[in-house]
Nucleic acid binder design. Structure first.
Lengths: 225, 225
DNA sequence: AGCGACGCTGAAGACCCGCTGAAGATCTTG
DNA sequence: CAAGATCTTCAGCGGGTCTTCAGCGTCGCT
């Protein structure tokens, strides 16, 4: 399940990210409204966790702008206090659920799961694409039943592609997700790791799982790998 | 049996912890509501002992938030006085049992046992992974039928891995669970204990049960480890 | 066919991460 | 209080991994 956390308190955001990733969620983080809005449009999420107090663009506005653009994913707002006022406004702007700070981590996870179920996503801990299987929990990968040893970077790239299987993912996206989001180096690193990845999961197997879309990016084939 | 004590009076909490551990319980302690809530979600417990008077978030709220999130474990509330008022409210918020302070230690243990029996049966007491067996109740461990003497820390690390067997667990996760959650020391302690653990349960046995996933964490092998 | 842009890949060195032995601190036990 | 066990810190080692770079291949366009 893909989750976007828009929260300016970096410690809280990082803690949530760690926790949710441990539960098998794929988590991205944005620290302000503008970035959150952009990131939400860039990648498909099941749920967006949205703080109200945000620098740049507050949560209400982010929420209503998303909905105005026909955004479908579930939106869970984090209200600072448990005043009914906040909550009413949150729901008015198109949020599906809200949670008052300070909140329990357990409750958050439960609500996230419920919301995702309601909105219709499933949580793939195991992504299967033809004879290629990617286990996000164990961080292992098999091709044609044979286990494949991947390095951390290689797996991270594969994971990012697997979660968007069938869609073309730009190198910039991969850089942002797998490397630091402010990474300003050469996009060639992605090519190098994709190359290494192919050597392990594609070479010696008939069809190519990782496809190049020239001028755009890469795509993980959904059919028989 | 795993017990979480949420009690702000440190002397009392420590005394209970020592006493219950002597009886064979595995005990964690939290000193305020927020921490208790978080800790409850992080690790599987059979029973949570919850004081009502807590800094940050009182026991009633902790209890109701846990239940709102679908929390299954037994909850035993410690009411300050024996007014029926407190007790009714405790049960209302989802507690299974209550005990008025000051209470007898013997009674507490009896109630805990009863509550665990009532709720229990779901938690795996014995985790078997190939020829490695981890008994969470007895806090013992055998490999290839031979008993292995583990220290407290070693067992705690192994337990944390065993409860998530097959999945990669980050050092940060292990630190949060086995050490204090606000522990800010070097993650090297984990490495040291994993090293010690391996010396006891892996060296001299063919396959490695504890696997390193570089850049991510550790994983306990599910197959014939 | 020719050209330019884009992508691929082998090599090499820097870098990072995890492992481990040792020593001191701390806790437990008799 | 002393002895022993356990825990933590530290530093060095070793090796796998990442990045950079340059050269080459390939694709698409004119």
């Amino acid at each position: 399940m893909r989750v976007l956390i828009v929260e300016d308190e970096r410690r809280l955001a990082a803690a949530l990210q760690r926790g949710l990733e441990a539960e098998g969620f794929a988590v991205d983080v944005a620290h302000d409204g503008i970035t959150g809005l952009r990131q939400a449009g860039r990648s498909p999420y099941d749920v967006v966790v949205l703080d109200i107090m945000l620098p740049g663009l507050n949560g209400y506005r982010v929420c209503s702008m998303l909905r105005a653009g026909g955004y479908q994913a579930g939106i869970l707002m984090l209200t600072a206090k448990d005043g009914e006022w906040d909550e009413a406004e949150a729901l008015d702007t198109g949020a599906d659920d809200f949670l008052s700070k300070p909140f329990s981590y357990v409750v958050l996870v439960a609500r996230l799961r419920a919301l995702a179920r309601r909105v219709g996503g499933r949580q793939p801990r195991l992504v299967c694409l033809g004879d290629l299987a990617v286990d996000l929990g164990a961080r292992t990968c098999t091709r044609a039943g044979r286990p494949v040893r991947l390095t951390a970077r290689e797996f991270a790239v594969l994971e990012h592609l697997a979660l968007r299987a069938g869609d073309v993912v730009s190198k910039r996206d991969i850089l942002d997700a797998v490397w630091d989001e402010h990474y300003d180096g050469d996009a060639n690193v992605v090519e190098v790791h994709v190359s290494a990845l192919r050597r392990k999961i594609d070479t010696a197997y008939g069809r190519a799982a990782v496809q190049t879309v020239r001028g755009v990016g890469y795509r993980l084939a959904v059919d028989g790998g």
